[in-house]
Nucleic acid binder design. Sequence first.
RNA 1: GCCCAUGUGGCGGAAUUGGUAGACGCAGCAGACUCAAAAUCUGCCAUUCGCAAGGGUGUGAAGGUUCGAUUCCUUUCGUGGGCACCA
Length: 721
Amino acid sequence: MRNQQLGHKVRRQHVIEEFIIDFAFLNEQVLIEVDGDYHNDEEQKQYDEIRTCYLNDLGYELIRFSNNEIEHQIEEVIAKISTILKSKKAQLNIEEKASHQIKVYTTRPDTIFGVDFLVLAPEHDLVNQITTEAQRGSINEYLTYVKSRSDRERMAEVKQISGCFTGAFATNPFNGKQIPIWIAEYVLAGYGTGAIMAVPCGDQRDFLFAQHFEIPITNIIGNHFDGTQANPTKEAVLQNADFLNGLLMKDAIKVAIEKIESLGIGKRKVNFKMRDAGFSRQRYWGEPFPIRWEDGMAMAKEETQLPLELPHVEKYGPGPEGEGPLANIESWKSENLETSTMPGYAGSSWYFLRYMDPKNSNTFCDKKVSDYWGQVNVYIGGTEHAVGHLLYSRMWTKVLFDLGHIGFDEPFKRLVNQGMIQGSSRFVYRVKGTNEFVSFGLKDNYDTDELHVDVNFVDGIELNTAAFSNWKPDYANASFILEEGKYLCGIEVEKMSKSKFNTVNPDDLVLKYGADTFRMYEMFLGPIEQSKPWDTKGIEGVHRFLRKLWRLFNDDLKGKVWNDENASDAELKILHRTIKKIESDTENFSYNTAVSAFMVCVNELSDLKCHKKTILENLLILLMPYAPHISEELWHQLGHTTSILDAAYPIFEASYLVESSKSYPISINGKLRTNIEMSLTAEQSEVEQIVLNNEIVQKWLEGNAPKKIIFVKGKMVNVVV
RNA sequence: GCCCAUGUGGCGGAAUUGGUAGACGCAGCAGACUCAAAAUCUGCCAUUCGCAAGGGUGUGAAGGUUCGAUUCCUUUCGUGGGCACCA
């Protein structure tokens, strides 16, 4: 719309009821839609017709232009819009003498009788029209103040209350009450309708606002409101609320909506929050947009001219006006090509499809090929990927599915969000306005600033003051207030980040223990989904396990100890129990319990002094994904000449695990009292007899007959007395 | 404020569909081997009463369902993460 050269306020992609309109002139009630080729389709034409009628009924005039008109006859298009806007303006000026309607959006229609004022966003279209002459000066002053504030300030200073009265009053449609209309920056133009009904007894922000500007408060929830703060409950019974009196608030919501709809003064609506895509980056690395700018309009390159490839650049510095590096390329600029590039997730949202068919020069991926490979089995990522990459990847996939290019509409079969390894931060406390630092235990006696200190200068919580002083020139002259001769730091678990000086480098550990130990220790720390602070305490245990494994193959003094003997039943039982456990733990991403199962297995084999190749080689294959280096090494020591990666995975045999008897736990009234070894084939009557004859059970029965005996085969026995 | 996790020994954490709470590891204690150390091995290790045998209490807190609850239900408190002047 030519950068508002039309002299009218235009909104792009504005939502009206359930439609997204390409361009909307809300003041003039004129909407512009631009139709592409697919609007020539009969079915689509009918749909468009319905949409046009519906919007006309709401009082809007809808004008349609074809894509072709926009591209080739833009001057005519603009002229036409101008003419219509002019005629509309005249019409509206007459109507403006009449009263206005303010639409508000609320999730709590049950509180309609507690409304004490209305607040519009400062940017709201009606502000100018409804402001009374008496208030115009203050309103303009307030608007100037709001404009001077950056978004950042508005978000940061949440506690600060500001606003201005317009002088106008609105009528509550239910009880005719006159309620003052204010404007305030805490109401956002972009959310809902940009106007709220304020209920001070139920909403804390509204309450603070009312208190600050001394607006009288109506109480509709009786004792639930104590006059000192709002109570956002839904559990109170309404009073002072006309037809809602006596209703529980959460039930009243439905009643109120129905009443509002039957009176035709509003409607039920789900409000969606739009997430801003921000789909461009001012940098070099990223797919270039196939977009050319002409007279301020973005034009897509012809399909035949694709792909558009990144040009070679000498430098990656920004362009003359702060644009991306592509702005430095003559040929790029002369074509008026877009200089921003796409963000990382543009490509990462669909590259798995291209990987299926990477050499295809006709299409990104033959449908036959993607049908064969199907969805990605598992997606593992952190939560930040869940909102970024994952969101877009799902959208890409759904679009490609709708267009018929692929046969599935979700990219990933399974999603695992791994937890974060957090940092354990350390803090020092500087007495305000000085270069004096006070130890943690004494800091409450002073007015201090809390500062992050590099964790490498801290042993436990004791600060190495010399290292700290050398850290930055500012601290060279620092003095310290110690407790018991030590400077103690504060601790907090946070995201690991350079800015928090709590990062640790795994290189040192890898150097000391090897990559296998490090890898297994990370797995052993706990469930993969859980976040936890990094702590190397316990890495020794994993390292000892690998050494113990090594000793099953080699003796420190004698060298090779593994042999070709046949395995015993006991050894086979250990092996197959491990195969079963590792298989299921691996599939469930339960890596910490898998590592534990390996430890149990190696402990038991050591106890049996088992050095048999037939057992050990299977164990190595299981271990390979967990400790790849040592597994490969030992595999070759066993005489294999090919990689362990090519070995067949061991097959679990249930027959090795069959037991004939079990040591049953015996409870009296649910409390464990003893264990009795019994055959696994024993039935209820047989078990009852054995249990009742048991000395310890008899002691607890004290001569009484049991009320009931619960027997779960293969599990336990409970005697109820 | 909203959403999602989560709470079990000194510590990290185990515990199939409700069925022996504390597997495995760390730290700790005692011992073996050694001139000594490292490495390795053995035993103990929730808490409380008890010489012992054996009891009591225990999975953030309070209730409930059940023969039986870390597991299910209700309420509540704490912690971590994500989003947020979002009505």
